[in-house]
Amino acid sequence: MSGTGPEARLAELGISLPEVAAPVAAYVPAVRSGQYVYTAGQLPFVGGALAVTGKVGEGDGLVAPDVAADLARTCALNALAAVRSITGTLDGARVVKVTGFVASDPSFTGQPGVINGASTVLGEIFGDAGVHARSAVGVAVLPLDAPVEVELIVELDS
């Protein structure tokens, strides 16, 4: 990476973080506690709407795993926007934990591959500071029939 931090890397990658997604219930997008920022679960909103809904799996009427991985990427960017709304910058931050939820067809077991969409973009943006612990969980349904949801725990250097 030629940039000096995540903010420079976002610019190098041509990634603009979106506006913070409005909560769909009684919560806030992110909370700081000491050196950590915890995000609420972020859905793959683009421009305030879900482009894709439904369960992830193989077959007709299901969200394809590669599409879901791209949606997980969008969730991660939405989560970073929530972090930045609290901190003002991503510089000096380290991604500690990613939790990803995948609304899965009962026969689908590829949740880790779907959540790689989030993990990969975090690695591209943060480099070594983006290496994180992770859970990828299959669930029956997510809010608004979203295919994926991602939440982050980020550690700050000050």
Rank of each mutant, 00 (worst) to 15 (best):
V83T: 06
V83I: 07
V83G: 10
V83N: 04
R84Q: 14
R84M: 12
S85G: 11
I86S: 02
I86R: 14
T87N: 09
T87P: 09
G88Y: 00
T89K: 07
T89E: 11
T89I: 07
L90V: 03
D91N: 13
G92H: 06
A93E: 01
A93W: 00
V96I: 13
K97V: 06
V98D: 00
T99W: 06
T99F: 07
G100F: 06
G100V: 05
F101S: 10
F101T: 02
V102D: 05
A103S: 14
S104R: 11
S104Q: 08
P106I: 03
P106Q: 04
S107C: 04
F108K: 08
F108W: 04
G110N: 06
Q111S: 12
Q111D: 05
P112H: 04
P112I: 01
G113K: 01
V114T: 06
V114A: 06
I115C: 13
I115A: 08
I115P: 10
G117T: 04
G117Y: 00
A118V: 05
A118Y: 01
S119W: 01
G123Q: 13
G123M: 12
E124T: 04
I125T: 07
F126I: 03
G127D: 09
D128G: 10
V131Q: 13
H132P: 03
A133S: 14
A133H: 13
S135W: 08
A136K: 00
V139W: 04
V139D: 08
V139P: 05
A140T: 13
V141D: 14
L142N: 00
L142R: 04
L142H: 01
P143C: 11
D145V: 04
P147M: 01
